[in-house]
Computed example of a mutant assay.
Amino acid sequence: MVQFALAYVLFMTAHVVPAAPRVRGLAVHMLGRGAYLALYSLISILLLVWLIAAARNAPTLSLWPLTPELGAVPLVVMPLALTLVVAGLSQSNPLSVSFRDRGFDLSRPGIVAVTRHPVLWGFVLWALSHVAVNGDVVSVALFGGLALYAAAGLGLADKRAKSRLGLDRWTSLAAHTSILPFAAVLAGRARLAVDRPTLAAILVGLAFYVWFLAGGHLWLFGADPLIYLRS
């Protein structure tokens, strides 16, 4: 439990401290936005792997039984979550987290037509789907906390984008997308089209999904995602 608490504190610290405008601004100025996001993502992934491993080694206090139905939840949700993360990081998106903030074209918004925060929504879906299949106190605290943190980032990302782009530019771009996935499409403010970058992101996301099922998840986290369906 001590290792889990330490990993949790370090993971949250690594996300809260860089979120401070002065710290983030200095880091982006020194490294460049792309390099900063790449380094930030790498550190986040390493800390997340450690955090999940520590959670698995912590004492277990079950809150609900694990069933094949609950085990199927992440199997259904994760293809979408992975696609959102891959597309969000790889496609140009000046409104949110992305490795590319230049070259955005409103006539070809890609994943931004679905939501202006695809990466954050990908993490929300990932975390919530893992709450369902990990019904113990530590896992609920872990994945539930991560889901809340990612959800809280939606408003924070809008605030940062407004500051970076200016209110007029942000308003003109945000008018053609939405925070809630598919809300702008349903309202007629955005047109959903699977262009080449989006299709590539879907294929890469599915490749990651297949790799996880084929042993990647077991290798990284010591858990077989198909075990509940085999029992």
Rank of each mutant, 00 (worst) to 15 (best):
Q3A: 15
F4A: 06
F4N: 00
L6W: 05
L6V: 15
V9C: 09
M12S: 11
A14F: 13
V23D: 06
V28H: 03
G32E: 11
G34E: 11
A35R: 15
Y36K: 07
Y36M: 10
L37Y: 13
A38W: 13
L39A: 11
Y40N: 11
Y40K: 05
L42M: 13
I43F: 14
I43A: 15
I45W: 08
L48H: 07
L51S: 00
A54F: 05
A54V: 07
A55K: 05
R56G: 15
R56D: 05
A58Y: 02
P59I: 09
T60K: 13
T60E: 12
L61A: 15
P65I: 06
L66M: 14
T67Q: 05
P68A: 12
A72S: 12
M78F: 08
P79C: 10
A81F: 03
A81Q: 00
L82K: 01
T83W: 07
V85W: 05
V85K: 01
G88K: 00
L89S: 03
S90W: 10
S90Y: 09
S92C: 05
S92M: 07
P94Y: 03
P94K: 00
L95C: 04
L95M: 05
V97G: 04
V97P: 05
R100K: 12
G103K: 03
G103I: 06
L106D: 12
S107Q: 14
I111L: 07
V112M: 00
V112D: 01
V114I: 15
R116Q: 00
R116W: 02
H117D: 10
P118S: 08
L125S: 03
W126D: 04
A127K: 01
L128K: 01
S129M: 03
H130D: 09
V140P: 02
L142P: 04
G144Y: 03
G145N: 12
G145L: 14
L146C: 14
L148Q: 04
A151T: 15
A151Y: 12
A151I: 04
A152R: 14
A152F: 14
G153A: 10
A157K: 09
D158W: 06
R160Y: 11
S163H: 11
R164F: 08
R164M: 01
G166E: 08
G166L: 07
L167N: 14
R169V: 14
T171W: 09
T171D: 15
T177D: 03
L180D: 09
P181A: 09
A183F: 11
A184D: 02
L186A: 15
G188M: 04
G188K: 04
G188D: 11
R189N: 14
R189L: 06
A190R: 01
A190G: 04
R191H: 14
V194R: 12
R196M: 13
T198I: 10
T198P: 06
A200M: 11
A201S: 14
L203W: 09
G205R: 03
L206F: 13
L206M: 13
A207Q: 03
Y209S: 02
V210F: 08
V210C: 11
L213D: 02
H217Q: 15
W219D: 09
L220E: 10
L220I: 01
G222L: 02
D224Y: 05
I227L: 12
Y228L: 15
L229S: 10
S231C: 07
S231H: 13
S231L: 11
